[in-house]
Amino acid sequence: MEAVHITSPLDAKTVRELKVGTPVLISGVIYTARDAAHRRLIEALDNGERLPFPIKGQTIYYTGPSPARPGRVIGSAGPTTSGRMDMYTPRLLAAGMRAMIGKGNRSPEVREAIQKYKAVYFVAIGGAGALLAQSIKKVELVAYEDLGTEAIRLLTVENFPAIVANDIYGEDLFEQGRAKYRRE
């Protein structure tokens, strides 16, 4: 299937058009956040504090890149297991986050929230960190520098490859794929 070029942050119309299984090439900006950063974002929400970046409409990429060699913008930067973020995700979707990139399937609660808040979840190829890093053109530190690889960074990406895994229509790529090829 031909990949669809999309721009992040995504607008509502784009999200409506994305269906499970569609390959996309993402250009624009995405924020990195994984376990420790999520915990802090939720703590900030709990304390009624402002988040370190305006999350409304934004895309979060679950990754903790390896360090950049001198002269390069980033090291290896593939997705981490999204399921560990499930406990935090509905809160962030309620706060306005519109898209996520990671690997692996999501909990029923997250899938429900994706539908409710009209968001989208993409998978990138797990373990293809060297390949995916080629689409990352610029990296800026946003917050939580002390978390090292887990700090929140703003990535400028060009044609970052991913696949729609959960859409606003409640479909799930993993379930569909498994059902199709299961032989028992």
Binding site: G21, T63, G64, P65, S66, R69, G75, S76, A77, G78, T80, I125, G126, G127, A128, G129, A130, L131, A133, Q134, T149, P161, I163, G177, Y181
Partner: peptide
């Protein structure tokens, strides 16, 4: 889609070795 993923994993390995980049960011 599975074939395409496997192709990209082979490409990932080529990039990693050429550029001394970790195959995966989780080292």
């Amino acid at each position: 889609l599975g074939k395409e993923v496997l192709r990209q994993l082979v490409e990932n390995a080529q990039i990693a070795e050429r550029k001394n980049l970790p195959l995966c960011q989780d080292c």
